[in-house]
Design a protein around this nucleic acid. Structure first.
Lengths: 211, 211
DNA sequence: TATGTTTTTAACCATTTGGTTAAAAAAAAT
DNA sequence: ATTTTTTTTAACCAAATGGTTAAAAACATA
């Protein structure tokens, strides 16, 4: 059984193993490895705590499987887009489109990654992060070529990639405090974040327009 | 005694109270409220655990004082710049300059805020976040006026503010994974992050240039 | 020097935590 | 129908955790 076989899903007709996984997924996302407790996971799954150990052996193993599943929900979309042969402009549009959609539906993904990556760096890097990460070489080359051809303003490709990801991710990660600073209630903030896709795309292309 | 009276500082000739605060600051930053343990804090401070309670009464109170101190290290610089009467262009340059400097020296500030804000939302919002947050009204008005005057490309002021902050903060928050995706070692990543200030400023002004 | 106050220590406490165990119950195989 | 295997239960365990207590030590004052 691999991490990709066990993902969060609909709750009806669940096996005990799936019930545990779903409960753990929710609690690890909300409270992280240290904050989520085994008894709490058992309560949420509606099972006896000893079953956690029967099916997953230790808290760490359960956590690692959940964490891998979360990573697996986020990384392939980046990979598919960044590594594709689409023309640069189309690639940027699609990346922003897909990535913001993904994060709007699953804001826990970047939140979890950032938090746990910094709280448990060794465990994260050595046990959770997949061996194969998205490779940006095609994208970087495309940016270089576009700069050389004069179709975009001169810019360091790595900084451009980082800018694109920053603009997509950060607003969702910092949502609570940004909402307060901008004086928005929840529906207003929802509406505001709905606009991110077009705002980010426009901002990036404006920034890339040759002089 | 207020949170502003107790900040992390040089370790020589410390009072016991300061030693505790410094140790707690380090450990809460590294591991968060749930991950940092009182005995661990006492060990790091080189004191007997009972003193934690003598000086700070409970873990929660110690945490809240440390958290307030961390917030206090980050927010005033935003406030001072955003709320100043500087012309818009100069305000953006100074904001990016000061803010990236602050985060480069203290990457724990946004990391702590994002992580703890999402792990303990009620405690964060009700006990830690100051009543007075930076007010963006002057900045937003300046952007509107510049758009109306045609000195910058039409853009929603709130999105612009969010874009600026995203570009400044996110690379430091996501450093470990971005470093791996971009295939950099630590010195290379340090050098790369050194360039953020000019890259971000250029990117923003390019994005704002009227058509 | 004696007294009062503050700080520190070491032992202790009740609860929580991740994990174990053996028996009972349920499911599967013969 | 019986036996074997798997799943579940409830009780238990040792260590960890945040916190308490009373006495000793250190400091300050008269």
């Amino acid at each position: 059984m691999r991490a990709t076989d066990m993902t969060p899903q609909d709750k009806s007709n669940d096996s005990t193993e799936q019930k545990i996984f779903d409960a753990a997924h929710e609690l690890f996302v909300q409270k992280g490895l240290d904050g989520a407790k085994m008894q709490e996971i058992a309560d949420r799954a509606g099972i006896n705590k000893a079953l956690l150990h029967y099916y997953y052996r230790t808290k760490d193993k359960l956590y690692e499987m959940v964490a891998k599943s979360i990573i697996h929900q986020g990384i392939p979309i980046i990979q598919k887009t960044i590594e594709s042969d689409l023309p640069l402009e189309e690639k940027i549009v699609k990346f922003v489109d897909f990535y913001i959609d993904l994060i709007r539906r699953n804001p826990f993904i970047p939140l979890f990654i950032i938090s746990e990556m910094n709280k448990h760096p060794e465990q994260f890097m050595e046990k959770i992060l997949p061996a194969r990460l998205p490779r940006p070489e095609i994208f970087l080359k495309q940016v270089e070529d576009a700069v050389a051809a004069g179709t975009i303003r001169p810019i360091n490709p790595q900084h451009l990639l980082l800018n694109i990801i920053s603009l997509c991710v950060f607003p969702f990660v910092a949502r609570p405090i940004m909402q307060m600073v901008l004086g928005m209630n929840k529906p207003e903030a929802d509406q505001f974040l709905k606009q991110r896709k077009t705002e980010v795309t426009e901002f990036i292309f404006a920034a890339l327009r040759p002089r």
